[in-house]
Nucleic acid binder design. Sequence first.
DNA 1: ATTTTTTATTTGTCAGACATTTAATTGTAT
DNA 2: ATACAATTAAATGTCTGACAAATAAAAAAT
Lengths: 245, 245
Amino acid sequence: METELKPDRDLSAQIAGAIRDAIISGQLIVDERLPSEAELAENFGVSRPTVREALKRLAAQSLIRTQRGATGGAFVNRLSYGDAYGQQITTSTLLLSMNDVDFATACEARFALERACAPLAAARRTPDQMATMRAEIFRQGQAGLSDESFCASDVTFHRALVDSAHNPVLSYNLAGVIEAIQPLMNMITYSARDRTEIIALHSTIADSIEAGDGACAEQTLDALQKYTIRLARDARNACGRRSVS
Amino acid sequence: METELKPDRDLSAQIAGAIRDAIISGQLIVDERLPSEAELAENFGVSRPTVREALKRLAAQSLIRTQRGATGGAFVNRLSYGDAYGQQITTSTLLLSMNDVDFATACEARFALERACAPLAAARRTPDQMATMRAEIFRQGQAGLSDESFCASDVTFHRALVDSAHNPVLSYNLAGVIEAIQPLMNMITYSARDRTEIIALHSTIADSIEAGDGACAEQTLDALQKYTIRLARDARNACGRRSVS
DNA sequence: ATTTTTTATTTGTCAGACATTTAATTGTAT
DNA sequence: ATACAATTAAATGTCTGACAAATAAAAAAT
C-alpha cells in the first residue's frame, strides 16, 4: 500500500483509490488500523491535509471509521447492512430523479424484484412479518389517512414482504428501489375507491404468503403493478389537463 | 443551504450532509455550480480545508464534480448509470466479503433477481444481445480455457441476459450482485463435465429468450442455480478435506 | 480582425500551528 | 500494595496563510 499510484487524478483521489483497493483485495482486514495521518503523509509523500481528504472520501463510503485520542486513528470498517442500505437508497434515489427514469420503468423494476422475493417469502415468512403486513393493511383502511401516510404504510408493507424472504442480499437491493420510488408514488392522489382496491390486493398478497402460495402472490403483485401504473398515468394526465386549462 | 447543521459529527460531515440534502431535495439542480470553497467557508463559518473535506466526501459519492480554473468550481453531478454501477459493485462486494454471507444466500439472491429479468428479456431481447450470449456460449466451449476466463465469460453472458430486459434500473441492481459474487465463483474448479452441463443450460436459456419463452428461461435458471450451488458445495468439501489431511 | 499577453479566479497542495479527545503513564495518598 | 488523581503522549479535528497550477476572460499588440 506504499506509493504505486495511478496518475491523472487528484492526489487525494489516488491515495483513496490505493487504500480502497487494499481493503477490497483483503490486504487490509476489518478493524485493522491504518497508519496515522502523519505516517500516511510521509509514506505517500504528500501533506497531511491531502491525506485527510483521501480519508474523508473513504469515510463517505463507510469504508473506514475514525476515532480520536491516544489509541485512535482510522480503522477499516465492517460495512453493515444498515450502511449499505443507506448508500443504496441515496444512489437509487438520485439515479431515478436525475436521469428521467419514467415511472413505468422504475415500477417495472420494483415489482419484478418483488415478485422474485414472493416464492421465498411464501416459504419462509415468520409470524412477526405477517403481523407487520396485517397491521399495515389495517392502517391503510383507516379513514382520514393522508396520502403521504398511506404511501409510507405501503412502503412498510412491501418491505415486510421482501424481508420475509429472509435473504439480506435481496432486502438490500429492494430497499433502494422501493425507497427511491416513494417520491414518485407520493405524487399520486389516492381516491377512496383506489385505496379499497389496493388494500384488497394487499390482503390477497398477505393471504398468499401466509398460505405458502408464492405463485398467487406473484400474480397479485403483477395486478398491483398494473393498477399502480394506471393510477400514475391518470395522475399525470390530470396534471397535464390542469396545466393546459 | 446556509448554516443549519446537525451537531455531534465532524464539521466536514455536517456540511457534506447539508449540501447532500440540498441536492437530494432538489434545491440544487444538476450542473448547478456551488459557491466557491472560500464562499462556502464563510457561509458555514469554517475554514477552507474543512469545506474541502466536505466536498471530497460528496465527490466520493459522485454527487459533485470539480473543475479548476477561472470559471471552475464544484458542480452538482448528474449521477450516471456508470457511476451508479461502480458504487453498487463496490458496496455489494464489500457487503458480501465482510459479512460472511454464504454462497448459497448470495447465489439465491442473484438467480432470484435474474429470473425476474427473464420474462422481460424474452419479450425485448435484441439481436445484438442474443449475439453476445451466443458468442459467450461458444467461448465457454473452447478447449484450454482457464477457470477464470470461464467465469468472466459467465459474467458477460449473464449481464447480456439481464440487459436484454432493457430496464436500466434492473441492470443496475443486478450488476452489483453478479460482480460481487464473481470472487466466490472463482473459487470453483470446473471439470470438463461441469462445463458441458453449464453450457447446455446456457444454450437452453438463450434459446428460450430468443423464442420469447420467459417461463422456460426461468426454469432453466433455476436448474442452473441448483447446479451452481452443488458445485460450490463440492468445492468447499474438497477444500475442507484438503485442509484436514 | 486576429493573435498574443496579461490578469483574475478558482481549485490543488503544502507547511505549521493549536485545540480536543483519549488512553496510558506517573505520582500520590491511603 | 492498591486506589485514585494528575500528568503526559498520541492521535484526530480545525485554523491560518501561503503558493502552484489551471483556465477563461480581458487587455494588448500585431
